[in-house]
Design a binder for these strands. Structure first.
Length: 212
DNA sequence: GCACCGATCGCCT
DNA sequence: GGCGATCGGTGCT
């Protein structure tokens, strides 16, 4: 049988709020320096709509070395460092010159759990499997993704890529941690797989709490 | 130059 | 449920 289908450039050539729900159920793969491949099913994402989106790093056309990846062609990886200690991983979409991206907030670990457990262990305590990649900072930590992978190509590169997959029932909500973004803070630009225990804390709650 | 604050996390109460 | 840790990016003085 054939291997997993790698998502190609055309998959990413669309608006962030269209791409985001389509990414639920797809698999994020990361090849380690040693050759081993780690995999996780995407279960939670957020769309960032660029220049018009007050919560986006590219709001009002901001363009700096830090967010340059957002302006690169669709299918580029955008990794940034925040809160002095966390990395966050985004999939750039739309088209070159248009700064839109989807933040990957949580994964359901599929391959390489031992490596993820080792990376996430703290003071001898290892998180439960469903918490290995729960939260954007933890996704990067578990996969060993940092600024070295910023601007990598997901379509042609061999380090990080995406594979096709199907998601379960979707939940939608406002994005997390963007309360100061005015009206944009209230827009429902976060998608997650309902009743999946790997969805991040706040998300799992609002997801379970939200009816229908 | 410098002050402010963030697309967070985990521990503490 | 609340808050401290911790530091680079950004924008203003």
């Amino acid at each position: 049988m054939s291997g997993p289908t790698r998502l190609d450039r055309s998959f990413f050539a669309t608006q962030a709020d269209t791409l985001a729900p389509r990414l639920i159920g797809c698999v994020l793969a990361r090849r380690e320096p040693g050759g081993r491949v780690l995999r996780g099913r995407i279960v939670e994402v957020e769309a960032y709509l660029g220049a018009k989106d007050r919560a986006s790093h590219a709001y009002a056309g901001r363009r700096t070395p830090r967010n340059e990846a957002m302006y690169m062609r669709e299918g580029t990886l955008y990794v940034y460092f925040t809160y002095g200690m966390h990395h966050c991983l985004n999939v750039v979409c739309a088209e070159e010159g248009v700064a839109q991206a989807v933040l990957v907030r949580a994964l359901e670990a599929v391959d390489g759990l031992e490596v993820m457990r080792a990376r996430r262990a703290r003071a001898g305590r290892v998180p439960a499997d469903e918490a290995l990649c729960r939260g954007p900072g933890n996704v990067c930590k578990a996969l060993g993704v940092d600024l070295a992978q910023n601007r990598a190509d997901l379509c042609d590169g061999g380090v990080v890529w995406l594979e096709a997959g199907a998601g379960g029932r979707l939940g939608v909500s406002a994005r997390i941690g963007v309360s100061s973004a005015g009206a944009w803070a209230r827009r429902r630009l976060r998608w997650f797989e309902r009743e999946n225990r790997c969805v991040s804390g706040t998300g799992a709650l609002s997801g379970r709490r939200r009816r229908t």
